[in-house]
Write a protein that binds this DNA or RNA. Structure first.
Length: 714
DNA sequence: TTTAGGG
DNA sequence: CCCTAAA
């Protein structure tokens, strides 16, 4: 599964392991970070496999930990095993900054495939390693991936949101839903925690696949073709103004590519690739199985394509989104990621595609020979030889792509990007890997590059990188009010107003989103370049711009570690002074409580989507396997950004300390309390939130099943 | 740089 | 709030 090498770039990027940390896990546990160490600026990828395995475990466990918010939330403590696995997968890297989130998606090739194609296998082998063996090798640390950027998290969060059971279940799965979801992505990741839980919940409840998948009723919906509208049902949409409808007419395409973007996601903008491909021609179907319960959250991702970019060949391209069905019992995997963040992984079971996103910088999606692969199938019969790609995941709608061999690499990238953006919310760039190498020339046709139906299955891969573009325009993310409400019934904290920061601090979200850019910058050295070809038509102009921005490597992150000393020096001057005491006002306390309620106090949440390939598609490809999302549920830093961004005198440490005192205050009798009285109501909320999140964490505790099992899904 | 905790 | 070990 692992792709040792290829991933170098990936690894680097994705190398990070994801380790979910237990809330209370000994520091040492977290420690993996050491690896991450300093530099990891860029790397953060996570091994999907790991995630997958973790997910599998969770799923398997049945406790539904995953499914439940709480469970889902599993904070995971990465078990050694997981770590190892992770490591394998990740190989090198690990170092990830702790960032808010890490995500990756790995595509793994199904065992079958391996068996089937010796050739490919060999080629892929480097990448693929025996899971076990690898696992052995893995080092915990390696497993850890730290991502520094929360921003990415935002995206992921958004993703999560989409994936949330609700959306799925609600039937939002429809193409429209999907489309709608896209915008959400950009939304701050804050809502995440709760959202995540939601996502998880389903799993918990049933081991089965997420809402989307769970039911059989899968319908396919064309995403693009026509108009994508936000489903009203979308819980969150409201605020963001998500309500907009996007029509994807041919006309729109041109400019609309932008249109595709959602208003909401400013961040996405950057990402938002232009879909050059004529979407008109493109068809995306989303089959979703929805649960009855929730309304769909999915939003449409917009996949807009600009006609300009579009290439003739593209017309044939077709994308389909299908919802994954159920998870297979067989499938068991879990992966833990560490730190911090969030992780999103998707595995595409049978296939081995690996898609990873590093929070730190890039997300890479890679599918390569052995392990991760996207396969293409080409329909020989047809005049135009088409390569069919399929990306499947639990929560994420399955993605089917059909593209002529005569299509250019650039168009392929676009196509994949569109699909990915639709699913993940944008903010990602797509790179094409063939035989482990990045194919940079977007102008070459697939045939020229050697990507042909017969050859490719195992040799084709994609890398996803975060788009660097920040979007100032970002609006505050829509809040989850609805969402929360929904949750309420089940969740203690649900009542909490969704409001928070977003309403107050729209900017915060934006900043987070922006964060992505930096991340990508780090990566540049590694992956970025490779991924995007300069001329990458796939990227929209905007993207290009962003891209460029990214190009220059940003030392900032990497340097950070080194610089540390310097910083100290700086501080030293007045350090001695004790800061003046500034008691928290009731309003501040309220803001803090609100933020914590929303973000939770737990550390990580892990979501593992699970999926199966459709038989019918098997022949063609394989893509996929699983997706796991782990993200940081809570970070004081996030609280700071969310609720006290403007209060420069309040550091996250202060907030943490305040929370500590609030919990204590709430625990003692009113008579014992001193200082400005804090409304009992707030104190009650403090206790509720504290209890709730603590519980969640507990649930998250991972139980890690054997890796090996996880691996064999198909 | 952040986190987590003790002081 | 401070201080710091760990990460």
């Amino acid at each position: 599964m692992v792709f040792p090498k290829r991933s170098t770039s990936e690894m680097e990027s994705g190398g990070g392991s994801h380790v979910a940390e237990m809330p209370r896990v000994p520091k040492s546990a977290r420690g993996k970070r050491s690896i991450r160490k300093k530099e990891s600026p860029g790397q953060m990828m996570c091994a999907f496999d790991l995630l997958a395995s973790v997910a599998g475990k969770l799923l398997d466990e049945g406790d539904g930990s995953l499914g439940n918010p709480s469970a889902a939330a599993p904070v995971v403590d990465p078990s050694p095993k997981d770590v190892k696995q992770f490591k394998n997968e990740v190989m090198d890297q690990d170092s990830c900054n702790e960032s808010a989130l890490v995500s990756h998606i790995a595509f793994q090739r199904p065992a079958n495939h391996h068996a089937r194609k010796g050739e490919d296998l060999e080629a892929s082998q480097p990448l693929n390693e025996d899971p076990k063996a690898k696992s052995e090798t893995l080092d915990k640390e390696s497993s850890i991936i730290s991502c520094s950027k929360a921003e990415l998290g935002c995206n992921f969060a958004a993703i999560a949101d989409r994936w949330s059971p609700e959306s799925v279940e609600s039937g939002a799965c429809t193409g429209d839903a999907v489309a709608n979801a896209m915008p959400m992505i950009t939304a701050g990741f804050h809502k995440n925690a709760p959202d995540m839980f939601n996502l998880l919940d389903p799993m918990d409840v049933d081991v089965k696949p997420p809402p989307l998948v769970s039911s059989d009723s899968t319908g396919e919906m064309p995403l693009y073709g026509n108009k994508i509208r936000r489903s009203t049902s979308f819980p969150r949409a409201p605020k963001g103004g998500m309500g907009f409808t996007v029509d994807r007419d041919e006309e729109d395409d041109d400019d609309k590519s932008s249109g595709c973007t959602h208003p909401i996601t400013a961040t996405n903008k950057g990402f938002r690739p232009n879909c050059t491909a004529g979407h008109s021609s493109v068809k995306k179907l989303l089959a979703c199985k929805c649960r009855k319960v929730a309304p769909a959250k999915m939003q449409k991702g917009d996949l807009s394509c600009s006609d300009v970019d579009r290439k003739p060949s593209f017309r044939n391209k077709k994308m389909y989104y299908t919802r994954q069905r159920t998870q297979r019992s067989t499938f068991k995997r879990r992966k833990m990621f560490d730190r911090h963040s969030t992780l999103v992984s998707e595995e595409y079971a049978k296939s081995n595609a690996k898609f990873t996103a590093r929070d730190s910088h890039t997300a890479s999606l890679e599918a390569n020979k052995g392990t991760n692969s996207m396969t293409f199938q080409k329909s020989h019969e047809t005049d135009d030889c088409h390569v069919n790609l399929r990306i499947k995941s639990f929560k994420v709608p399955e993605l089917l792509i059909e593209i002529p061999e005569t299509a250019t690499v650039g168009s392929l990238k676009k196509t994949v990007l569109e699909a990915v953006n639709a699913i993940l919310g944008g903010g990602l760039r797509v790179g094409v890997l063939h035989h482990g190498k990045k194919v940079r020339d977007d102008n070459k046709t697939l045939m020229q590059v050697g990507i042909a139906h017969d050859d490719v299955l195992d040799n084709l891969g994609f890398s996803l990188e975060p788009n660097s573009t920040p979007h100032p325009s970002q609006h505050s993310p829509p809040e989850d009010t609805e969402f929360l409400e929904t949750v309420d019934t089940t969740e203690p904290l649900a009542r909490i107003a969704p409001t928070d920061s977003s309403s107050k601090h729209g900017e915060i979200d934006a900043s987070q989103e922006l964060a992505l850019a930096p991340l990508s910058a780090n990566y540049q050295g590694n992956d970025h370049d490779s991924v995007y070809s300069p001329g990458g038509m796939s990227s929209p102009d905007k993207a290009s711009t962003n891209w460029r921005a990214i190009v220059p490597v940003t030392p900032a992150y990497s340097n950070a570690g080194a610089i540390v000393p310097a910083n100290k020096a700086k501080r030293s001057p007045e350090q001695g002074q004790r800061r003046i005491r500034r008691p928290f006002s009731v309003s501040e306390v309220e803001a803090l409580v609100l933020a914590v309620e929303k973000l939770g106090t737990g550390r990580y949440a892990v979501y593992f989507p699970h999926f199966d390939l459709d038989r019918k598609f098997k022949p063609l490809y394989f893509f996929v396997s699983y997706c796991a999302i782990i993200w940081t549920l809570f970070r004081w830093r996030d609280v700071k950004l969310r609720a006290f961004d403007s209060a420069k005198h309040r550091t996250y440490v202060d907030l943490k300390d305040k929370w500590k005192t609030l919990v204590h205050t709430a625990s003692i009798s009113p008579q014992q309390r001193r200082g400005e009285p804090v409304p009992q109501e707030l104190l009650d909320r403090v206790l509720a939130a504290q209890a709730y999140w603590s519980q969640q964490q507990t649930k998250l505790q991972p139980k890690t099943p054997p890796l090996a099992e996880a691996r064999l899904l198909t």
